[in-house]
Amino acid sequence: MARTLVFRLVALLASAPLAAEAGVVSITLPSDQGALKAGTGMEVTQRACQMCHSVDYITMQPRGGEAQWRGVVNKMIKVFGAPIGDEDARVIVEYLSREYGAGR
């Protein structure tokens, strides 16, 4: 399932030391199973925050207050160019500080 049949041949050839290789290698990534907690603002956050990466980037972070999450959202907008308007940013920060806030 990992690689095509062609690749198995390549792998065999390659075990002869440094044989020149030829062929196609291809893999299929498993689906993204990550999810955000339900709550007001979840849909906006989901839409805005998985344009560039999966939401497990968010859920793995230490729990933190509004300052932490405002910092994150600002960085995504200013440093990485996330197209998030002021109103959406406010809703997202509120959602994240509530659902992934200190003490949760």
Binding site: M1, A2, R3, I27, T28, L29, P30, D32, Q33, G34, Q50, H53, S54, D56, Y57, M60
Partner: peptide
């Protein structure tokens, strides 16, 4: 954190998927 199997990989600990 779930243990997952990605192509050419055995069960590893998932940090992020995309």
């Amino acid at each position: 954190r779930p243990l997952v199997r990605y192509p050419e990989k055995t069960e590893l600990i998932l940090l992020t998927s995309r």
